[in-house]
């Protein structure tokens, strides 16, 4: 399978076979139609219910709008991916987040609770999850090439 994403003088390019576009359309529909988003992290204060409710309430609208914008960006560019289409940095990040969400939602539906699934390449139900992993890793690889290896003063762990 050739790489789906590439980086050339024109920027980040995505080119997919017809079957890949069809599969990703189905995956996108899964993300858009998913009424149960409990598989997606949204809790900041698991031991402080009042603070957690405030956090969720304050960010709910922004979260909803940002997810919809990501899905729209991916949907529009996916339509052109068979011929090959260049993605802006923002569109590529949107693809990355939607692929991440779809993996979490799919894994939740398949009952994945440990990393053992990564070693199972035979089970048919996991094939799509493996494909999405490959696709996401491919995009991460391309996007990482454009990251400055800057230092930061942020006090991290």
């Amino acid at each position: 399978m050739s790489e789906a994403f590439g980086l050339d003088a024109g920027g980040i390019k995505v080119q997919l076979a017809d079957w890949q576009i069809q599969l990703l359309s189905d995956v996108l529909a899964l993300v858009e139609d998913s009424s149960d988003d409990s598989a997606l992290p949204s809790s900041a204060y698991p031991d402080r219910p009042v603070d957690d409710a405030d956090y969720r309430r304050l960010l709910a609208s922004e979260r909803h709008q940002a997810r919809a914008a990501d899905q729209s960006a991916m949907s529009l560019t996916l339509e052109e991916a068979e011929a090959g289409v260049y993605l802006s940095r923002g569109e590529a990040e949107a693809w990355l987040r939607v692929l991440g969400e779809s993996r979490l939602l799919l894994a939740s539906r398949l009952g994945v609770t440990s990393a053992v699934w990564e070693e199972d390449e035979e089970t048919e139900e996991l094939a799509v999850l493996h494909y999405l992993s490959w696709l996401q890793a491919s995009l991460v690889d391309v996007l990482s090439d454009e990251l400055p290896d800057s230092d930061s003063t942020d006090a991290g762990g």
Partner: peptide, 30 residues
């Protein structure tokens, strides 16, 4: 978590916090 890829976590930490690859990798491994 059992789903997110290691390379993805490193990328997100580098992107959001501007950490160099070595620091992001160290945090991911932790």
């Amino acid at each position: 978590d059992p789903v997110n890829l290691m390379v993805y976590v490193v990328y997100v930490l580098r992107t959001l916090f501007g950490y160099p690859k070595e620091k992001a990798t160290k945090l991911m491994l932790q």
